[in-house]
Write a protein that binds this DNA or RNA. Structure first.
Lengths: 162, 162
DNA sequence: CGCAAAATCATCCAAAAGAATGACGACAAC
DNA sequence: GTTGTCGTCATTCTTTTGGATGATTTTGCG
């Protein structure tokens, strides 16, 4: 079964299940209320209706309150980020040639460092995932890395990528 | 399904679960009120009391919901300021607190960025691999990352790690 | 042209990583 | 003394990654 979509299907399944459970629970709850209502021959409906109304209203009020009360402070935090202004960055050609890393491999290395998955890289470069895997395999081989995180680390210290 | 979305699945799941708990709790509350009403035969003049009770309870619930649901929404204005090129590096405490990243999680983040596998990290910290996985899962959740490479990338741009 | 390097894709398999969930003890805060 | 956070660990499952290997197509170059 080929996993086609990128966003986790597992999570979506869980979300759907949660909604389902929620709905069923709600239905059962209503049913129970109904039955007890009949059992005790209570006709008066105003309590549920007004209770629910009050609940909903004050829930909304509470949510609104919570939101407005707390969203005051974290608005503007100015960070001082040492932005290096004088670095267009060029990969170390010597080291590149030394490791016999091809342009395509370097390109993929960059995308790996950007945090993309093989599938995302494949989509980005319009090639198959298998191709990306062979490229990255050879890349790891040349870099002496066993994991992509290690490859990124090594490449950074070798000034192959920013 | 376009493979474009990158929003955290964790948060969505939490939101669903919160809503679920919330709904069930509300229903149970009504049920309990109903039952007690029958048991003690308190019929008259109870509407104001229970209405107030429901209002107060649901207000509190709503506030809590609003707070937990909107817990971490950064919205930071980033201002780039050229800084000294040779700094000993200190992690951005503000950002760290903002994302609610614990010291242990930061430690593991650093080891991930160093290219270590979960097993190696576990051996390095004398904990089980499962613990490392738990930490990194929560870390990814807080960082909004789905892969460790992405976590590293995000952490670097947020100045959490060198 | 013909060759070699680079790029492409596949398949099978193993290992690592990640997701979801539940649990427990320590410890600080209220 | 309850509450909340943190750190710890486990289990089950799915997904991703990596290894090994072979094959086909481009492409640049002498």
């Amino acid at each position: 079964m080929p996993p086609t979509t990128e966003s986790s299907p597992h999570s979506r399944r869980r979300a759907f299940r949660d909604i389902l459970v929620y709905g069923i629970a709600g239905g059962l709850l209503i049913l129970i209320l109904k039955l007890t209502e009949y059992r005790f021959l209570v006709i008066e409906h105003s309590f549920e209706i007004y209770g629910g109304l009050i609940a909903a209203l004050f829930s909304a009020l509470g949510i609104w309150l919570g939101l407005t009360l707390t969203r005051k402070k974290p608005s503007v935090i100015i960070k001082e980020i040492p932005a290096s202004p004088s670095e267009p960055f060029v990969p170390d050609e010597a080291r590149l040639a030394q490791l016999a890393i091809t342009p395509r491999e370097l390109e993929i290395l960059g995308l790996i460092a950007a945090g993309l998955s093989n599938r995302e890289i494949a989509a980005h470069l319009f090639v198959s995932e298998n191709t990306v895997k062979t490229h990255s395999s050879r890349l790891f081989d040349k870099l002496g890395a066993r994991r992509r995180t290690q490859a990124v680390q090594l490449a950074k210290t070798s000034r192959l990528i920013p």
